Computed example of a mutant assay.
Amino acid sequence: MKNLDSLLELALKAGKEASKILLEYKDKNTLWFKDDNSPVGLADIKSNEIISEILASSDIAICSEENILSYEERKNLEYFWLIDPLDGTKSYAKKDKEYCALIALIHKNTPVLSLISDVENDMFYYAHIHTKVYKNDKILNHSLDKYEEVKNIALYSKNHDNNEDFFIQNHLKGIKVSSALKFVYLLEAKAGIYPRFGGPKAWDIAAGDFLIKQNGGILYDFNQKALDYNSPDFKLPSFIAFAKTNFKLKGF
């Protein structure tokens, strides 16, 4: 096993530098569209550059949304970094505050370390498999009573399809949030459930998946199986996350 303490410090350094870049470029971002019709901007590229530059000192391969390692390159890797240098590009382009940078360390097909940078609020959520989840320099700690109050509050996506019937059938109240900051809402006990319909990409979810589980929650697909973060095309199935493992819906 790698020295996860030093790698977490490196990820935190990268996340902080990426946050500076994203704040710097917010008023001078140029946006265009990739071949898959997803938006990308100058800020994505600049954030990707600084994160990759810092993580390169680990001598671990780096796979980013903006510089994807082919399956042939990574299928036999024991470890690789999986990053999204700007999650929430549409919100960022609108000058909204709901965007973040995501860094995860994948061991075979499972995250073992991750960080979410909540840029606008200057908050960093991070952990590895042998630590608690930290919020900046303190352990994130909420009582179970606080989570009880939000167990029927679910997170809607602002920019992706939502299954309205699922929310109605399960008597869920909804909050609309952009980007992987939905995972922060679970971590901070502002919501209890995050169902995601349609195929997200691995770099959108890996960091949040790991932090939710490390904080006593759970995330799995609709067959109650863990997600594979080293699949050939990085596409993930629909899934559901619970802030705490004792929060369940019928059928889950």
Rank of each mutant, 00 (worst) to 15 (best):
M1D: 02
K2Y: 05
N3D: 01
L7F: 02
L12K: 15
L12Q: 13
K13Y: 06
A14G: 03
A14K: 07
G15Q: 06
K16Y: 12
E17V: 13
E17R: 15
E17Q: 13
K20N: 14
K28H: 10
K28Y: 08
N29G: 05
L31N: 11
W32K: 15
K34Y: 09
D36T: 08
N37W: 13
S38T: 15
S38D: 03
L42V: 11
I45Y: 15
K46M: 02
K46R: 01
K46W: 06
I50L: 09
I50A: 12
I51F: 00
S52R: 07
I54D: 14
I60L: 09
E65R: 15
E66Y: 06
N67H: 11
N67L: 02
I68C: 04
L69V: 02
L69F: 02
R74F: 03
R74Q: 00
N76E: 08
E78H: 03
Y79K: 01
Y79C: 07
W81N: 10
P85D: 07
G88D: 08
T89D: 04
S91I: 00
D96R: 09
C100N: 06
L105R: 03
I106G: 09
H107G: 06
N109Y: 06
L113V: 00
D118L: 05
N121R: 02
D122W: 07
A127V: 01
H128I: 07
H130G: 02
V133H: 04
N136W: 10
N136H: 07
K138G: 12
I139D: 04
I139F: 05
L140K: 08
N141K: 15
H142M: 12
S143R: 14
D145C: 15
D145I: 15
V150A: 08
N152Y: 14
N152G: 11
I153F: 10
A154H: 14
L155F: 10
H160I: 09
H160P: 05
D161H: 15
D161Q: 14
D161M: 10
N163L: 12
F167R: 05
F167T: 00
Q169D: 11
H171K: 15
K173C: 04
I175Q: 10
I175P: 05
K176G: 14
V177M: 04
F183I: 00
V184S: 04
V184W: 01
Y185D: 06
Y185C: 05
L186D: 01
E188N: 12
A189W: 01
K190L: 12
A191S: 13
I193M: 11
F197K: 08
G199P: 04
D204Y: 08
D204M: 12
G216V: 04
G216S: 13
G216M: 04
G217S: 04
G217E: 11
I218Q: 10
I218F: 10
F222I: 10
N223C: 09
A226K: 03
L227W: 02
L227Q: 02
D228N: 03
D233T: 02
D233W: 03
L236Q: 08
L236F: 01
I240H: 03
T245A: 00
N246W: 09
K250Y: 11
K250C: 10
